[in-house]
Amino acid sequence: MAHQADAKRALDERGYQGVLIRGDNPLKLFEKPVRDRIVDSYYWKEQCFGLNAATLLDRAVELSFIGGTYGIAQKPTPFLCLAFKLLQITPDREIILYYLEHAGDEFKYLRALAAFYIRLAWEKDEEVYTTLEPYLADFRKLKRRTRESWTLTHMDEFIDDLLVKNRVCATTLPKINPRTFLEDEGKLEERVSPLGEELDELDRDDDDEGERSEGEVEELEVNGNGHQDSDSRRSAEDDEMNDAD
């Protein structure tokens, strides 16, 4: 059992023989421009050559940020290169779970990497949900490199992005059924939030406050997102102007 040292043969257009994910070459889960940039990058050539599932850990523990591509040249981040490498070597399921569960406790970027891989490569929606959702309770900070700058995010945010958004880290994620749909089908149990009863209490408090303060402050209407409505803000400004006059 062996695999190639680089992705040259796997990316050969003339034919692919190897593990299939979703009926196709796993490397094609990344888009062609991103694929080309990864294969051209110095990090890929120097650091990702000849890695296997064990030596990949050496590189993964040195990760210090997540992200897709950056800069005007859209250079791929090391995170993206390693995810690409994972897709090339397609490690066994238990190795990926080991990355996510055990090794992820120690090295947070490794957990992010494993989660990203699982979302891309695992084909059963309910498994993706059940494996990733426990880490919505992991609140460690993650540094994310965007096109031109850096932002701060958290593990739970990242996992949520993976489950909800369709584009993360310069990659269009494969289609996944929404959670509610799977619940209706009976494939998934309803999720119990780690906040538990606190969540209900928070809701109740909000309702109570809403009832009490309705008569007092009319302008402070809150819309569904928890943000103040722009319309009501404008009317408040108008009021102030009137007062000044």
């Binding site: 059992m1 062996a2 695999h3 190639q4 040292a5 000849g50 890695l51 296997n52 599932a53 064990a54 030596t55 850990l57 050496d58 523990v61 070597i89 490690p91 066994d92 238990e94 190795i95 080991y98 990355y99 055990h102 090794a103 120690e106 090295f107």
Partner: peptide
């Protein structure tokens, strides 16, 4: 060299992780 990389087993991965953890 053959240009082929040996697949790592779960045990090797565990061992590597323990080593890296210790190093850190």
């Amino acid at each position: 060299e053959s240009g082929e990389v040996r697949r790592a087993t779960l045990d090797e991965v565990k061992e590597r992780f323990e080593y890296l953890k210790r190093k850190r």
